[in-house]
Measured scan of single mutants.
Amino acid sequence: NSLAEAKVLANRELDKYGVSDYYKNLINNAKTVEGVKALIDEILA
């Protein structure tokens, strides 16, 4: 998966839960796919 794909999928996942734009910005600023995954795990914990 590319970083861009990971960000799109992460933001879709956040949308399902009604997560605020603050967290979407964190996702969009992530530098690695692993970073995106770690943020998602933390946000949805």
Score class of each variant (00 low, 15 high):
residue 29 N to I: 07
residue 9 L to E: 15
residue 28 N to I: 08
residue 25 N to M: 12
residue 30 A to V: 05
residue 7 K to I: 11
residue 14 L to A: 15
residue 44 L to M: 12
residue 40 I to P: 00
residue 45 A to P: 06
residue 39 L to F: 04
residue 45 A to F: 10
residue 42 E to V: 13
residue 28 N to F: 06
residue 36 V to I: 13
residue 24 K to Q: 06
residue 29 N to F: 06
residue 44 L to Y: 04
residue 42 E to W: 15
residue 22 Y to T: 05
residue 15 D to H: 05
residue 30 A to Q: 09
residue 14 L to V: 05
residue 41 D to K: 14
residue 6 A to P: 00
residue 14 L to G: 03
residue 37 K to T: 09
residue 14 L to T: 02
residue 36 V to E: 00
residue 21 D to A: 09
residue 43 I to Y: 10
residue 39 L to M: 08
residue 36 V to W: 00
residue 38 A to G: 06
residue 18 G to S: 05
residue 2 S to L: 13
residue 5 E to A: 12
residue 4 A to F: 08
residue 10 A to Q: 01
residue 40 I to Y: 13
residue 33 V to Y: 04
residue 28 N to V: 06
residue 45 A to C: 12
residue 18 G to I: 08
residue 3 L to V: 05
residue 28 N to T: 08
residue 33 V to T: 05
residue 8 V to A: 15
residue 32 T to H: 03
residue 28 N to P: 01
residue 1 N to S: 11
residue 19 V to N: 06
residue 5 E to Q: 12
residue 19 V to C: 13
residue 22 Y to S: 05
residue 20 S to W: 06
residue 1 N to H: 12
residue 30 A to M: 11
residue 4 A to P: 03
residue 16 K to I: 06
residue 6 A to M: 11
residue 34 E to D: 11
residue 11 N to P: 02
residue 15 D to T: 08
residue 24 K to T: 07
residue 22 Y to I: 09
residue 39 L to P: 00
residue 8 V to H: 15
residue 26 L to P: 01
residue 14 L to W: 01
residue 8 V to P: 00
residue 12 R to E: 15
residue 29 N to H: 09
residue 32 T to V: 01
residue 31 K to L: 13
residue 4 A to E: 13
residue 10 A to G: 07
residue 39 L to G: 01
residue 10 A to R: 00
residue 33 V to Q: 03
residue 43 I to M: 05
residue 26 L to H: 03
residue 5 E to I: 11
residue 16 K to W: 04
residue 18 G to P: 05
residue 27 I to F: 01
residue 32 T to Q: 02
residue 35 G to V: 14
residue 42 E to F: 14
residue 17 Y to T: 05
residue 26 L to N: 02
residue 43 I to R: 01
residue 25 N to E: 15
residue 11 N to E: 13
residue 23 Y to E: 04
residue 44 L to P: 01
residue 17 Y to W: 14
residue 31 K to M: 10
residue 7 K to H: 02
residue 15 D to Q: 09
residue 42 E to M: 14
residue 35 G to H: 14
residue 19 V to A: 10
residue 25 N to Y: 09
residue 36 V to K: 00
residue 16 K to P: 03
